[in-house]
């Protein structure tokens, strides 16, 4: 399904040849290959979905759409590189709340400015987090976890997929809001943290909805959905808002941005291709299988999400007092 090496090479070759004489290409955009930069390694959810979207966009645009994985520094490397790329529509960046709206607050230095360097192209998926515990703990609500931390200070451990991750901030925010002591135990990725939760070493984690499989298998308990409204994937699962903890809303998203200054008609054209891709049924199914929902791809919606998320994470980072040097 992926591009093989030769097509990719051919596309790159073609792209570099075309670059020489493409100054006036605005009217017939795209006249060469479009690259989507993914700030993560291959294999993850965003990378897999972008591969599928790229294939569909290629159909619509009539030019190759290449996915380039450029992992590094929690997404900062790729975001910084695209921020400096030419605003001609040929370079697109994949963004998540972490890479675009959280990193600027979390890191002492980020190589881009969200509003100065990027324009929204459109969202493609909304992702969710769930609060998971081991069945033996007997926690049924967020309040139960806080009560347990109050009753026996220094016994609660929560895992995350690394410092500055959603899981880390969510756990710290819960501790701050509940005014209790909890120990953060980071893991290199969500999988190993899930294993230690199943072994009963961790008290809880804020994990991906993909872990709901383990809840169904009886290995884990889901305490709440870390969002405001219930979702179709787990209609019986109470939300943190229902339990009175609306600030623990860790609903995420995945979308694309372009370097700021990209001509509007080009953004419109790319957005058309994105909307076309999202109409595909198999793609929609795949997104649902991964525990996410298809998003409204309009740039206006994304602009609003970026603005509100940026302020939200600013507040969260101040509340939990986490900085990464």
């Amino acid at each position: 399904m992926r591009f093989n090496l030769t097509t990719r090479m051919a596309a790159i070759l073609f792209a570099s040849c075309a670059m020489a004489g493409a100054a006036s290409a605005q009217d017939d955009f795209p006249s060469r290959a479009v690259t989507i930069v993914v700030p993560y390694a291959t294999g993850g959810m965003s990378s897999t979905l972008t591969q599928l979207i790229a294939e569909k966009m290629q159909e619509n645009l009539g030019q190759p759409v290449i996915v380039s994985n450029q992992p590094g520094a929690n997404g900062n490397l790729a975001s910084g590189a695209v921020a400096r790329a030419a605003p001609d529509g040929y370079t697109i960046l994949l963004g998540t709340p972490s890479t675009l709206t959280l990193n600027p607050h979390l890191y002492a230095e980020t190589p881009f400015d969200l509003f100065e360097d990027f324009d929204p192209l459109g969202l493609y998926a909304i992702t969710y987090s769930v609060v998971l515990t081991h069945p033996d703990t007997g926690y049924e609500t967020i309040d139960d976890i806080v009560a347990a931390a109050q009753a026996a200070p220094g016994t609660i451990n929560f895992g995350s997929s690394g410092p500055g991750s959603f899981g880390h901030l969510a756990g710290e925010l819960l501790a701050a809001l509940g005014d209790v002591e909890m120990t953060h135990i980071p893991y290199p990725g969500g999988g190993p943290a899930l294993t230690d939760l199943m072994a009963g070493r961790l008290s809880f984690i804020f994990g991906d909805t993909i872990a709901l499989e383990q809840v169904e298998a009886g290995n884990l308990d889901a305490v709440a959905l870390a969002g405001i409204e219930r979702i179709a994937q787990a209609p019986d699962l109470e939300t943190v808002a229902e339990q009175g903890w609306e600030r623990l809303d860790f609903t995420g998203w995945q979308g694309y941005v372009v370097p700021r200054g990209t001509p509007e008609e080009i953004v419109v054209r790319l957005n058309e291709a994105l909307a076309y891709a999202l109409e595909d049924e198999t793609l929609g199914q795949r997104i649902n299988e991964l525990g996410a929902d298809v998003a409204d791809p309009s740039p206006e919606v994304f602009a609003e999400v970026l603005r509100s998320n940026y302020d939200k994470w600013d507040q969260v980072v101040q509340d939990v007092d986490v900085v990464i040097e």
Binding site: N76, L77, E325
Partner: peptide, 20 residues
Amino acid sequence: GSDIYTGTQRFTFGVPVLTD
């Protein structure tokens, strides 16, 4: 690279590609 517990840079000498 980055210390997996704090995210602090170790022996990267400010070179961005070494952060991981």
